[in-house]
């Protein structure tokens, strides 16, 4: 009996220690999803896209109410996967380059430079709502072949996933972010030609 009690105490102490360590650490979430190619009419322009380092390595840190790092959400690679799925369906041709200067040397019709302005996460334990929510604000820039600005506009995307599905928090954050990324893809692909400066530029090319 004594041995059993000691084992039980050890197990409880081990569990308590493990829980303490878990509560202190930051949970890393790498957003992963699959993004379909959009069914939209392709524009007859050749585009170079620049994914700068800020986009490639973008991550957002959510802090707990006590100021500790709670979630570290990396979404840069997922954004690049999304744009790589969306852009080829929207334009005649798309080439990825490292810088605007490199794009200028290629002689393409336009240079597209996407950037993430802001990322927000709403967790049910803070909002008291039954959903995980992700908001992302983007700054989209379209440059002419010589690097002169054509259009500079803001896009927002939103994704949510309910808490009632029995999943872990990191899975729910990933699902909400993937919904937000799909929302970006749909609004970007459908509204690109409606951005006034882009519309005027496209009309001037015809």
């Amino acid at each position: 009996m004594k041995t059993t009690v000691l084992n039980l105490r050890n197990a409880v102490a081990f569990l308590a220690g493990a829980l303490l360590l878990m509560s202190c650490g930051v949970s890393n979430v790498v957003i992963q999803g699959s993004y379909p190619s959009p069914n939209v009419a392709s524009l007859p322009i050749d585009v170079a896209v620049v994914y700068d380092e800020a986009l490639r390595s973008f991550h957002y840190i959510e802090y707990s109410e006590t100021g500790n790092e709670e979630y570290n959400i990396a979404s840069g690679e997922s954004h690049i996967a999304l744009f790589n799925a969306v852009l080829p369906a929207m334009f005649n041709s798309v080439v990825t380059v490292d810088s605007v200067e490199e794009a200028q040397a290629l002689g393409v019709d336009a240079i597209f430079v996407p950037a993430i302005d802001e990322f927000q996460l709403a967790l049910p334990n803070k909002t008291k709502l039954d959903v995980f929510e992700v908001w992302i604000r983007y700054n989209m820039r379209l440059l002419a072949e010589d690097g002169a600005p054509i259009a500079d506009w803001v896009l927002t995307s939103y994704g949510k996933t309910p808490t009632e599905n029995l999943r872990g928090t990191t899975t729910a954050i990933n699902e909400a972010a993937v919904v937000a990324l799909r929302d970006l893809a749909s609004s970007f692909s459908l509204s690109f030609g409606q951005v006034p400066e882009v519309r005027d530029w496209l009309a001037a090319r015809q």
């Binding site: 379909p36 069914n39 919904v179 799909r182 749909s186 609004s187 692909s189």
Partner: peptide, 12 residues
């Protein structure tokens, strides 16, 4: 929904 993307997303 994937085959019809982006026409049957929550916002569209």
């Amino acid at each position: 929904i994937d085959a019809m993307f982006p026409w049957f997303e929550p916002r569209t």
